Computed example of a mutant assay.
Amino acid sequence: MSTPDAEYSGYPPLRPRVSVEELLAAKNTQPIRSLDDLAADTFESDEELEEFLAFTYAERHRDVA
């Protein structure tokens, strides 16, 4: 029985080693300077947030007995 590609080792190809600093520079990332950098308007109202939190709590405790 022959293999389709004799050079294929079954492992992903090796990538060149790149430092964290080089990866960050390539993505043009900036450091987080304050919590405001992380702020997002995910929920339109406090009620919507409360519904989400209640749902999440209920799902996490659904099969706990």
Results as ranks from 00 to 15, higher is better:
residue 53 L to H: 07
residue 64 V to Q: 08
residue 46 D to W: 02
residue 34 S to I: 02
residue 3 T to L: 14
residue 36 D to C: 06
residue 9 S to L: 05
residue 42 T to N: 03
residue 43 F to T: 01
residue 42 T to L: 04
residue 39 A to F: 00
residue 21 E to H: 10
residue 1 M to S: 14
residue 64 V to P: 00
residue 24 L to V: 08
residue 47 E to Q: 14
residue 51 E to G: 05
residue 14 L to H: 13
residue 63 D to M: 10
residue 62 R to P: 00
residue 29 T to K: 08
residue 5 D to T: 01
residue 8 Y to R: 08
residue 52 F to K: 02
residue 56 T to C: 09
residue 13 P to T: 05
residue 16 P to C: 12
residue 53 L to R: 07
residue 6 A to N: 07
residue 14 L to D: 15
residue 61 H to K: 11
residue 45 S to R: 04
residue 41 D to K: 02
residue 1 M to W: 13
residue 57 Y to S: 13
residue 51 E to D: 15
residue 21 E to L: 12
residue 37 D to Q: 03
residue 26 A to E: 07
residue 55 F to A: 13
residue 6 A to E: 14
residue 13 P to Q: 12
residue 24 L to I: 09
residue 5 D to E: 04
residue 18 V to L: 12
residue 33 R to V: 02
residue 32 I to Y: 01
residue 30 Q to T: 13
residue 47 E to G: 05
residue 59 E to I: 10
residue 33 R to Q: 11
residue 12 P to I: 00
residue 18 V to G: 01
residue 25 A to V: 06
residue 47 E to A: 15
residue 40 A to P: 00
residue 21 E to C: 07
residue 53 L to E: 15
residue 2 S to L: 13
residue 10 G to H: 01
residue 34 S to M: 03
residue 26 A to I: 06
residue 57 Y to I: 12
residue 45 S to G: 04
residue 55 F to R: 11
residue 50 E to V: 08
residue 2 S to P: 06
residue 17 R to H: 14
residue 16 P to D: 15
residue 12 P to K: 01
residue 51 E to Y: 06
residue 9 S to M: 05
residue 13 P to Y: 03
residue 18 V to I: 15
residue 48 E to Y: 04
residue 37 D to F: 02
residue 58 A to G: 12
residue 64 V to T: 12
residue 60 R to A: 06
residue 41 D to C: 02
residue 20 V to H: 09
residue 1 M to I: 11
residue 15 R to A: 14
residue 33 R to K: 14
residue 10 G to L: 01
residue 58 A to Y: 02
residue 9 S to R: 07
residue 1 M to Y: 13
residue 35 L to W: 07
residue 49 L to F: 10
residue 30 Q to D: 07
residue 19 S to R: 05
residue 11 Y to G: 05
residue 20 V to Q: 12
residue 17 R to M: 15
residue 17 R to D: 12
residue 35 L to R: 09
residue 53 L to A: 15
residue 17 R to Y: 14
residue 32 I to H: 01
residue 54 A to L: 10
residue 9 S to H: 03
residue 47 E to M: 11
residue 5 D to K: 00
residue 31 P to R: 04
residue 64 V to L: 14
residue 6 A to G: 02
residue 51 E to V: 09
residue 7 E to K: 06
residue 59 E to H: 07
residue 32 I to F: 02
residue 42 T to K: 02
residue 39 A to P: 00
residue 1 M to E: 12
residue 41 D to V: 01
residue 23 L to C: 08
residue 62 R to Y: 05
residue 2 S to V: 12
residue 5 D to V: 04
residue 8 Y to T: 05
residue 25 A to Q: 08
